[in-house]
Write a protein that binds this DNA or RNA. Structure first.
Lengths: 229, 229
DNA sequence: ACTATGTTTTGGTCCGACCAAAACACAGGT
DNA sequence: ACCTGTGTTTTGGTCGGACCAAAACATAGT
C-alpha cells in the first residue's frame, strides 16, 4: 500500500531537485503546501517530517523548514542518531576507532604514493600551524584535526572529507575527556611530523606505520576513559 | 525549543534499549501509547514517524511498527534515500566507486599482511565457488560478491561488512546493465585468483595492485553505461 | 482441527480549533 | 532616511474528534 504523504514527499523532492524550491531557502508555509498539492495538513506535516529525517530539509521548531540539497555531509546528520546508539553499546567506540585507524593508515599510504605539490604544501602548513599551537591546547586540537583533514582531502573524493567529519563528530565527544597537556601535544606533533616526513620521502610503508603508531598511542590515552563509561 | 514528540521519541528509545519494547516485536498500538505517555495521537504518530526514519522501528502501512534494534546495517537503510539522490548527480557513482577502490585496495593489502589460516581457507573456498560458477552468470555474480565479502570480514570489524553491503546495494543497480558473458567471468575469476595468490604469498603490494587492476577493468566495462545515464 | 464469517481493533487521513512564537507592518522618535 | 517599539497577522505545534478500510481477533460451521 501507499501512504498519501509518500506521494507528497516524492513531489517535493522533485521540486527541490529541479530548484523550484530553492536550496537554503524556506519551504512554503504548510497551509500553502496544502493548497498547492491538495493535501490535508496532516499529510503535509508528515511529509515534511519525513523530508527532515531524510535530511532534505532542516527543521527548527517554530521556524520554516529550510531546503537543503543533500551532500555527503547530510548523510552524517541523518545517521548520527543511529551511530550514537551503536557507540553506546559495548565495543562500539572501539570498532569505530579501529575503522578510523584502517582508513587513515591507508590515507597516509595513499598520500605517500600520490600527493602532489599542492598537497604537500597543504600538509606542510597544517603541520606548521600544529606546531605553533603546542602551548594552546584547544587550538592544538583544532590544528590536529586539520592536519588529518588534509589527508582526507588528498584522495580528491568528496566522500572522504565527509567520513572525516563523521569521525570527528562521533569520536571527539569521547576525546574531550582526554588529558591534553602541552607535553602531550608535543608528542602528537612529532607523530604528525613523522607522518609528514614519510609522505615527503614518498615512503608509503613508513607513512603507514607512522600513522598506525600515532593512532595507537592516542588510543591508549583514551581507552581507559571509554571503558569506564 | 522542544517538540513534544522529541520527548516521546527519547522515551521510546529508552524502552527499546532496555528491552521493554522487545526487538522484532510490534510496538504497542498508537492509542495505547497515547495512554501510556499521556500524549495526543498527533504526537505519538509523529514520534513513530521519526523513529521509523531513524531506523529504530520498521513501518509497513496498515501494520504495526516493528521494533528494530539498530546495527550497522540499519545505518544503510537510513541513508539509502540520500545516497540515491547523490548517485543521481553527475559523478556520484564515480565517486562511490572510487571510494570502493580505495577501500578494497586497502583490504587486499590488509589481508596479505594479517589474514590467518581460517581467512585464507574462506578465501580459497570462495574462489573455488567462483570458479564453479563461471558458466552460470547469475551465480558467478553471487560468488563474485562473496569473494569480495570475505575480504571485508578479515578486518574483524562489524563496520566493514556493513560497508560492503552498502556498496552492493548502491552500485549493483548500475552493475546489472553490465554485459556478463562467461568469457568475461573468466577474466574476473583470474583477477580474483591473482588477488588470492598475492595474499597467500603475503605480498601486500601485489595484492593491492591486483585488486586495483581488477576493479579498474570492471570500471571500464560499466563506465560507458553510466555516463549515458 | 480447519475454514469461513462476522466483529473489533488499529493505522491512515481529514477537519477544525487553539496557542504561542515568529514574521510582518506600521507608527513614532531620532 | 534609519532605527525602535508596538500591534497585527501568519505560521508551526498540539489537541480532540471523526471516518474509512484493512488487519487482527473471535466465533460459528464444516
Amino acid at each position: 500500500m501507499r501512504r498519501a504523504s509518500d506521494d507528497l514527499v516524492a513531489e517535493i523532492e522533485v521540486r527541490i531537485a529541479s530548484g523550484q524550491f530553492e536550496n537554503n531557502k524556506p519551504l512554503p508555509a504548510e497551509r500553502d503546501l496544502m493548497d498547492m498539492f491538495g493535501a490535508s495538513r496532516t499529510v503535509v506535516r508528515e511529509a515534511i517530517s519525513t523530508l527532515a529525517n531524510r535530511g532534505l530539509v532542516e527543521t527548527k521548531p517554530r521556524f520554516r523548514p529550510v531546503v537543503k540539497k543533500p551532500d555527503y555531509g547530510t548523510v552524517l546528520t541523518a545517521t548520527s542518531n543511529i551511530i550514537e546508539h551503536l557507540l553506546s553499546e559495548p565495543g562500539g567506540v572501539t570498532d569505530l576507532y579501529r575503522s578510523r585507524e584502517f582508513i587513515e593508515r591507508s590515507l597516509a599510504r595513499h598520500a605517500a604514493l600520490h600527493a602532489n605539490k599542492d598537497d604537500i604544501a597543504d600538509l606542510k602548513s597544517a603541520l606548521a600551524a600544529n606546531y605553533e599551537a603546542i602551548d594552546d591546547t584547544p587550538r592544538f586540537f583544532q590544528t590536529d584535526m586539520e592536519f588529518h583533514g588534509v589527508l582526507y582531502k588528498i584522495v580528491r573524493n568528496p566522500i572522504f572529507p565527509a567520513i572525516h567529519e563523521g569521525y570527528l563528530s562521533w569520536l571527539s565527544p569521547s576525546w574531550g575527556k582526554m588529558k591534553r597537556a602541552p607535553d602531550h601535544n608535543l608528542v602528537n606533533y612529532h607523530a604528525h611530523k613523522k607522518i609528514y616526513d614519510a609522505i615527503l620521502e614518498r615512503d608509503p610503508v613508513q607513512a603507514e606505520n607512522a600513522m598506525d603508531e600515532h593512532l595507537a598511542v592516542a588510543w591508549e590515552v583514551v581507552k581507559d576513559t571509554l571503558e569506564n563509561k
